[in-house]
């Protein structure tokens, strides 16, 4: 195994290195950051047999073009419905292919989705901060945003032909499904009916959408009084409402504390679907109890894990594995040749 070197020939805004995120630093004002869509990020890595939280490139709708200067490396693209142009072929995402010296790869927004992940069968050489390469966008701490002309080195890069090809259909939720939220913790600071409005009416994703949060357009969610709460911790998935009655969903690079009341908080696994919405898309919410929220999260995580385990197995070696299983069970009798 050797290094592979890529050059960024074009990058849209908000394209950055992201590993699984840094945990344990919120008390110092540092959110986890990491992928906006954590499931798609894990999928891109596991499809190559890499750890789920390995460093990958988060690609925005702005897209990304790379040229391979030297070496050979397999890559995976997962998340949303992005399109790839690679070595003269146009293919859809949720795929594994191999990039060789002299070839170019372009990833562009396709039919749906705001973010996809480009992972490699090799270690991405990216700057770590507090033990993680996840990029915190406003500070640019961590691996940082990609820039045109930048060279990316992949250590111990390898080609894994046995993994190439489209992945089986991922277990993604129905795009029209309501996003589950647990009311609060400050739903009682809103005018009567505000929580009903949140869970009854559709909201529209606005262009004010980045890694910190997603501003929603929709019916006003009026506060009961003008008093602000003492600033308190916030989370990825907190739906905070400013004095103007407009809701913002906090996301990967959220502020760790804030003084706006939170009417509800998204179930953790639901944020992955929400972040794939684009400006203009409609979002609907449904209130669930804390127990129901845990049940849903556990069910989602189990479903995802089963699929991630499935794609982590190189398909080319399936025959070998069956052969092994047969030998062990004694079913294999063809020992003459």
């Amino acid at each position: 195994m050797a290094d592979a070197v890529l050059t960024v020939t074009y990058t849209g805004p908000q394209v950055s290195f992201q590993d699984g995120g840094r945990r344990g630093w919120m008390r110092f004002g540092v959110p986890a950051s990491g992928p906006m869509d954590r499931f798609a990020h894990a999928a891109a890595n596991r499809a190559l047999g890499r750890p789920a939280g390995a460093t990958a490139i988060e690609v925005s709708m702005g897209g990304l073009s790379l040229t391979c200067e030297s070496g050979t490396v397999s890559f995976a693209v997962c998340g949303g419905g992005f399109t790839l142009d690679h070595a003269g072929a146009r293919v859809e995402g949720w795929v594994v292919r191999t990039l060789s010296a002299g070839e170019s790869l372009t990833i562009r927004a396709g039919k749906w989705g705001s973010w996809c992940y480009l992972a490699f069968a090799g270690e991405v050489d990216a700057q770590a901060w507090l033990g993680a390469t996840a990029t915190h966008a406003i500070s640019q701490f961590g691996g940082g945003a990609l820039t045109t002309g930048q060279r990316i080195t992949l250590r111990n890069a390898e080609a894994t032909p046995s993994r190439e090809g489209p992945l089986p259909a991922p277990p993604l939720p129905d795009p029209n499904a309501r996003q589950p939220v647990v009311p609060g913790p400050q739903e009682d600071r809103f005018a009567p009916g505000a929580l009903d409005t949140l869970t009854r009416e559709p909201f529209t994703v606005t262009p004010a959408y980045d890694r910190m949060g997603m501003r929603l357009d929709g019916p006003e969610l009026p506060l009961a009084d003008a008093l602000s709460i003492p600033s308190e911790p916030t989370l990825r998935g907190s739906i905070q409402v400013a004095g103007d009655g407009v809701a913002t969903v906090l996301l990967a690079d959220h502020q760790t504390t804030g003084g706006y009341p939170k009417i509800a908080t998204l179930v953790s696994t639901a944020t992955d679907a929400l972040v794939q919405a684009r400006a203009g898309d409609k979002v609907r919410f449904v209130a669930v109890s804390p127990d129901e929220a845990i049940m849903r999260a556990r069910r989602d995580l189990a479903t995802r894990q089963a699929w991630l385990d499935e794609i982590a197995v190189p398909r080319g070696s399936l025959e070998d594995r069956l052969m092994r299983a047969n030998l062990i069970s004694g079913v294999h009798h063809g020992g003459d040749e």
């Binding site: 609060g184 989370l235 953790s268 696994t269 804390p290 929220a293």
Partner: peptide, 9 residues
Amino acid sequence: RAVADHALL
């Protein structure tokens, strides 16, 4: 207060 599926305030 339970916050989503993963936090307690």
